[in-house]
Simulated scan of single mutants.
Amino acid sequence: MGYLFGPVLSRRLGLSMGVDLLRHKTCNLDCIYCELGRTDCLTCGRGRFVPPQKVLGEIREKRNEPFDYLTFAGSGEPTLSQDLGRVVAFAKETVSRPVAVITNSTLLTSPAIRKEVAAADIVLPSLDAASPAAFQAINRPDPGLKIEEIIQGLKEFRREYSGEIWLEVMLVAGINDHEADLIARAAESTEPDRIQLNTVVRTPAEPVRPLSEEEMVRMLEIFPGAELIPDWDWRVPFDIRNRILDSLCRSPSTLEEICRLHDLTDSDAIKYCKILEHDGLITRRIEGGKLCFLGSKSRGRG
């Protein structure tokens, strides 16, 4: 069993090599929108879920592979692993790329866990509610968790941490969008470097409704300065698709080269390569220590 996965194409982090310290699906929340499905083990208890020595070995083996971030994420909430601090510290010593931690913020109430997470170069916490009712409705937490304590934990973490904090807010129609103003005030009070607004675009744990693109744009009036990060339009425009495929069938290219050749932003290049790879139209390989994409031998033109 492998404990590192990827690198995956991430619109927020580029090429992200994931580190999973958990068993599927171990979390202290059972979010209605989670793409991993329902939580199998709902707990606030920290534990050892995977052999740490094997994780350290995989990090050592893969440290020279091409990726932009080594990202602690995976099958649940990373801070539930009692080995998080040790593995993050090892990664910082071993890997030349930045280390990221994606967290649901719940255990940042603990000074010891805040210290472990603060060893990362960038932290991506989340905050989906500002009231107990909305917290219960969208995140379905372990009974011991309180949203006001979580918000306070985020504030404490900001005071102690000098790195980048990118706070994600997931908005679900009819569940927490009615208190967007409260969430916005709470989010601002935690002083993140970025606030990133998201909605449900992947298959969720429960049949919930996303906000439309128009509704999300209106949310920018409530969250001034925030970014919108959902992928509503999960397709590659026909002309761009064929241009990318034609060029990759002639010669492998890195993401940077794809951006330059086709006049694309980084996020669009990542999105399009992710779709084309998923559809089996392109593959990846390492050339000269860099991740390159190349066209598959057989493909349609439709």
Rank of each mutant, 00 (worst) to 15 (best):
D181Y: 08
D181Q: 11
D181L: 09
L182W: 06
I183R: 02
I183K: 03
A184N: 03
A184G: 08
A184S: 15
A184T: 02
A184Q: 01
A184F: 00
A184Y: 00
R185F: 04
R185H: 07
R185K: 10
A186Y: 06
A186W: 06
A187P: 04
A187Q: 01
A187T: 01
A187G: 06
E188Y: 02
S189I: 05
T190C: 07
E191R: 10
E191C: 06
P192L: 03
D193N: 12
D193Q: 06
D193R: 03
D193M: 03
R194D: 01
R194V: 04
I195C: 03
I195N: 01
I195D: 01
I195L: 03
Q196K: 00
Q196T: 00
L197S: 00
L197Q: 01
N198H: 03
N198C: 05
T199K: 03
T199I: 08
V200D: 10
V200N: 09
V200A: 11
V201S: 06
V201G: 03
R202F: 12
R202I: 10
T203N: 13
T203V: 15
T203D: 15
T203K: 13
T203H: 13
P204A: 12
P204C: 14
P204I: 14
P204S: 13
P204Y: 13
A205T: 15
A205E: 13
A205L: 13
A205M: 13
A205F: 13
A205K: 09
E206R: 14
E206C: 15
E206V: 15
P207S: 11
P207C: 12
P207H: 09
P207K: 06
V208F: 14
V208Y: 13
V208W: 12
V208K: 11
V208P: 15
V208E: 13
V208D: 14
R209C: 10
R209T: 15
R209S: 15
P210S: 11
P210V: 09
L211Q: 08
S212N: 07
S212E: 04
S212L: 08
S212A: 08
E213V: 08
E214F: 07
E214W: 05
E214G: 05
E214Y: 07
E214A: 13
E215M: 10
E215L: 07
E215H: 07
E215G: 07
M216C: 10
M216V: 10
M216W: 03
V217N: 08
R218I: 09
M219P: 11
M219N: 09
M219E: 04
M219D: 03
L220Q: 10
L220W: 05
E221M: 10
E221D: 15
I222W: 04
I222M: 08
I222H: 06
I222T: 15
F223S: 01
P224E: 08
P224I: 13
P224F: 12
P224G: 13
P224Q: 11
G225N: 05
G225E: 02
A226L: 04
A226K: 01
E227P: 01
L228A: 06
I229V: 14
I229G: 01
P230T: 07
P230G: 08
P230W: 02
P230H: 03
D231C: 06
D231S: 12
D231V: 14
D231K: 02
W232H: 11
W232K: 05
W232G: 00
D233W: 05
D233R: 09
D233P: 00
D233E: 13
D233K: 09
D233Q: 07
W234M: 10
W234F: 12
W234V: 14
R235K: 11
V236T: 11
